[in-house]
Design a protein around this nucleic acid. Structure first.
Lengths: 171, 171
DNA sequence: GTCTATATGACGATAGAC
DNA sequence: GTCTATCGTCATATAGAC
């Protein structure tokens, strides 16, 4: 059973994803969550507090992603690279929503930087060579940026991924 | 001599870069540009029109970047990768300001996607192998994302860049 | 071309009933 | 715990003088 608090954060994500921070008003979020503005403000004292709640949810997801990273180098790299391309899972939705807070909510920048770093912890742990590990991370983040902007060429990207994965295999 | 119009767009960039979209009010931009709000609205009919003006300036910069790409594959890749790490030039400032419009101004997403694509046109033209060219682009965009969030490890990144550059050299 | 003054509306947050 | 009602503030945009 989802708590009202969680439903409010879900609504905040929805609003951020389809109207951006400009549409993320207390009224708008409350309406989407099916509560009144007063009800919302009982759970989150201010708009800042609401945004902090979303970033906390994001941080919680980072630990889960780290734990889900496979123990084999190539599988870990594939897990990371393929996860960078889409926005299907609930965790990805939270990330995309949080990215929209950049510029609007100053603490978002540092929290997102930590998130990217925590996510790549699984790569550093699994892949011995730090240069290879960083290469995988940078390519993944590049893919993520393109997915964010709705650009990218799936076929070509698949070939780049294959090239990078080859480097994770012992020779 | 900079026109008033240009000075207003400069002011918009300044405001976006240090207060984010929330601080980008007509009053704030006008004050920074040294004109009144009425004066601003003579040059740009609405806030939307003002944002469009910034995105037009960005598009103009993409063509210049393409033209500035060196004709040799490795030099082109180095130009791209090193340009992805910093935010010094006027063009980079325009890009960073435009990125802040994501979420606030819906058309910004597509315009930014085109910009990234136009920027990489120089790579596609110079580097024969499309997979290598795309690899350079993705790593560059990953570096850019990290620079944007203020993260990154310069020494390690330099080693990744060296690795990628090696692939642009004929064997 | 640039200004001042003002109409109009939206947002964040508080107070207090239920 | 959730609601309605309301206050104060600030933003966009218009109108019209200079």
């Amino acid at each position: 059973m989802a708590s009202t608090r969680d439903r409010i954060l879900d609504a905040l994500q929805d609003v951020l994803l389809d109207s951006g921070p400009a549409g993320a008003t207390l009224d708008g979020v409350a309406q989407r969550a099916g509560v009144s503005k007063g009800g919302l403000l009982y759970h989150f004292r201010s708009k800042d507090d609401l945004f902090t709640g979303l970033l906390d949810r994001l941080s919680a997801g980072a630990a889960a992603a780290d734990a889900a990273t496979p123990p084999e180098p190539e599988a870990a790299a594939r897990f990371f690279l393929e996860g960078s391309q889409s926005a299907d899972s609930p965790e990805e939705r939270t990330l995309l929503a949080a990215l929209r807070l950049l510029g609007t909510h100053p603490p978002a920048r540092a929290r997102l930087a930590s998130y990217l770093d925590d996510w790549a912890a699984g790569l550093r742990r699994t892949i011995d060579d730090p240069v290879t590990s960083r290469l995988v991370q940078l390519v993944g983040d590049g893919l993520f940026l393109h997915a964010l902007l709705g650009a990218g060429d799936p076929d070509l990207d698949a070939r780049v991924i294959a090239l990078v994965l080859a480097r994770t295999r012992p020779e």
